[in-house]
Amino acid sequence: MSNNSVRVASMKRKQTTGNIVAYIVLIVISIIWLTPFVCLVLQSFISRAEFMSTSEVYLIPKTWSLDNYAYLFSKDCNFVRWYINTLVIATFVSIIQTAIVLCVSYALSRMRFAGRTFLMKFWLILGMFPGFLTMICLYFILREMGLTQAGAVPGLILVGTASSGMGYYVCKGFFDTIPKALDEAARIDGASRARIFAIITLPMAKPIVIYTALVAFMAPWCDYVFASYVAFGYSKSYNVAVGLQNWVWTNDYQGFFTRFCAGGLLVAIPVTILFMALQKYYVEGVTGGAVKG
């Protein structure tokens, strides 16, 4: 009896020390993870004049200034335009891509037709080619259609959605888990495939619809490579990634770095809030995707 309680007590002690260690590790991790974001926010309040006045780089602004934010919304800067461009691209890509992925997933999950396995294998192989290989060819196709430079926004929507059928894996995996018995029952009642898709499958697929839409929505915010190629030299067609990127690298934009911080923060805030709000669905999607491969 007493022996046992000693053991329980020692286990408890062990667990407490274990937890303390765990807490310390977690706190250290959190600090590492948050540092860049905190620094970004702090530096965004250092005005360009202050940033240029000294060769030293520091975190805490000597005078807290909103100059960077004012500049972003001033007439000298196309930031608002870039923002709208990105928002438009992201919204359209998100809607169209989700629709396409749902269609493909349903067809591949529920229907058996000639060439089904061929199509899946063929797309799998296509996916092994590096995406940038086709960049130059796509650029010329878009140019012929008048969708570069001034027309870059619809061009980017087109390229962003055209091949999205190939990204059906996670969604199809989810559809596969919806019992087929439901479909069969509805078919016996005389429902057509299209009706089953709309009335039965779609409502049950809400988590995966949100996941697909969310991932599709977030991608254009990071699209630098193809966007910069298509919109090259035409500032009004830039998206935020292309526009802000220049401020970090190019020597023409001396001292624009803290403005980049301000712009980056304005981009990050809404995207982050959206992501956090829909995080539950994102987790469901990535976990399902990883398990089913």
């Binding site: 991790i29 959190s30 993870w33 948050l34 860049p36 974001f37 620094c39 970004l40 977030m218 915010w221 990071c222 630098y224 990634a241 802000l244 990127q245 970090v248 980049f260 911080c261 980056g264 923060l265 981009v267 990050a268 995207v271 982050t272 992501f275 956090m276 995080q279 994102y282």
Partner: peptide
């Protein structure tokens, strides 16, 4: 949530920074 911030913030912002 703290960790997941890096997924939420667009990479071009966080990585360039």
């Amino acid at each position: 949530t703290i960790l997941v911030l890096t997924i939420a913030v667009p990479q071009f912002v966080s990585l360039l920074y």
